[in-house]
C-alpha cells in the first residue's frame, strides 16, 4: 500500500514537473535558449492566484484563469523586451539575461509580497479524498486532478502542435528558423506564441503544485524550475512527449528516493539519474541526434 501511495504522489509531482517542463522544452525547441526565468513565472502565477482568491474574493478556478492570462502576458513581454533583442547572439548572453529576468521577478515578488511565506489555499478545497482498498489507500483530490490535468494538457497540446496551422508553424520554426521564414511563416509571432503557451501552462503548474505543497515564497519557483528543466533534458529537450515522460519519471524517482532512501539525498539521486541517462543517451530519452557538420 505504501508503494501505491508513493506511486500516486510520485505521478502527481511528476505531472507538475511535466507541465513546467513543457514550457522549457517548447521554448528550447523553438529558440534554442535555456529560459531560467521559467521557474519564476510559476511563482508569479502562484502569487496572482493567491491575490485573486484572498484579496479579490474570486473563486479558485476563476483566479486560476486570471493567473493564466497574467502569466501569458508576462511571458510574451519578457520575450519581447529581454530575449528578442538577443536572438541569434549565442547561448551565453541569453542565458545570463534569463538569469537577470529570474532575479528581477523574484525581487519584484519580494518587494510586493515580502519574504514571509504565504499559505496557499488548495484549488480543490472542499473535495473529499478518495478511499480505496478498504480505507488503506487514501488518494487526495490534488493528486488525481493534477494527474488528470497533465493528461488533458498533453493531449490538447499534441493536437495543437500537430493539427493546427499555428502549431505546424511552431514546429517548422523549431526545425529550421530560416527556412520557415522563407516559407512565409512569421517567426516572431510563432516564438511569442510559444512563450505565451509555456507561461500560461506555468501558471497552471504553479497553482497545481501549490495546491499540494502550499508554501508560497518569492523563491518557490526556483527549485521546481530546475527540476522541471532537468526533466525536460531527461526526456530529450525540444520534445513534447519527452517532457511528459521525463517529468513523470523524475517525480516518481524523487518520491521513492524520499521515502525509501533519504529525504536529504532525494535531489542528489534525481540529478544522478539525469547524468546516467545523458551518459547512455547524450540527447535524452526522446531527443533528436545532433549531427555535426564540418
Amino acid at each position: 500500500m505504501i508503494f501505491l501511495t508513493n506511486l500516486i504522489s510520485g505521478l502527481s509531482l511528476g505531472s507538475v514537473y511535466a507541465i513546467i517542463a513543457l514550457g522549457y522544452t517548447m521554448v528550447y525547441g523553438i529558440s534554442k535558449m535555456l529560459n531560467f526565468a521559467h521557474g519564476d513565472v510559476i511563482m508569479i502565477g502562484g502569487y496572482m492566484s493567491f491575490v485573486m482568491t484572498m484579496y479579490m474574493g474570486l473563486n479558485g478556478w476563476l483566479a486560476l484563469l486570471v493567473a493564466m492570462v497574467i502569466c501569458t502576458l508576462l511571458g510574451v513581454t519578457i520575450e519581447r523586451l529581454a530575449y528578442r533583442p538577443l536572438r541569434g547572439t549565442g547561448s551565453l548572453a541569453v542565458l545570463i539575461t534569463a538569469i537577470g529576468v529570474s532575479y528581477f521577478l523574484q525581487n519584484i515578488a519580494l518587494l510586493i509580497w515580502g519574504a514571509n511565506p504565504k499559505m496557499f489555499t488548495s484549488l480543490f478545497k472542499g473535495m473529499k479524498p478518495v478511499h480505496a482498498a478498504g480505507g488503506q489507500l487514501t488518494i487526495t483530490p490534488e493528486s488525481i486532478l493534477t494527474i488528470l490535468a497533465n493528461i488533458v494538457i498533453m493531449i490538447l497540446l499534441t493536437l495543437f502542435v500537430s493539427k493546427t496551422k499555428a502549431g505546424k508553424a511552431m514546429r517548422a520554426v523549431s526545425e529550421d528558423n530560416g527556412a520557415a521564414q522563407l516559407m512565409g511563416i512569421n517567426v516572431n509571432q510563432s516564438i511569442s506564441l510559444t512563450f505565451a503557451i509555456g507561461s500560461g501552462l506555468a501558471a497552471v503548474a504553479g497553482v497545481l503544485m501549490l495546491s499540494a505543497y502550499p508554501v508560497l515564497m518569492p523563491t518557490t519557483g526556483a527549485m521546481p524550475g530546475i527540476k522541471a528543466f532537468t526533466a525536460a533534458v531527461f526526456g530529450g529537450i525540444g520534445s513534447i512527449p519527452g517532457a511528459m515522460i521525463g517529468g513523470l519519471i523524475l517525480g516518481i524517482i524523487e518520491i521513492f528516493s524520499r521515502s525509501y532512501i533519504s529525504t536529504e539525498l532525494s535531489d542528489a539521486i534525481v540529478f544522478a539519474c539525469l547524468i546516467i541517462v545523458l551518459l547512455v543517451k547524450p540527447t535524452g530519452l526522446l531527443g533528436k541526434k545532433i549531427s555535426e557538420k564540418v
Binding site: A82, G100, Y103, Q106, L111
Partner: peptide, 9 residues
Amino acid sequence: MLTYAIVLI
C-alpha cells in the same frame, strides 16, 4: 537586487 537584475539585463 532589483536594480542589479535590471542592470544585468
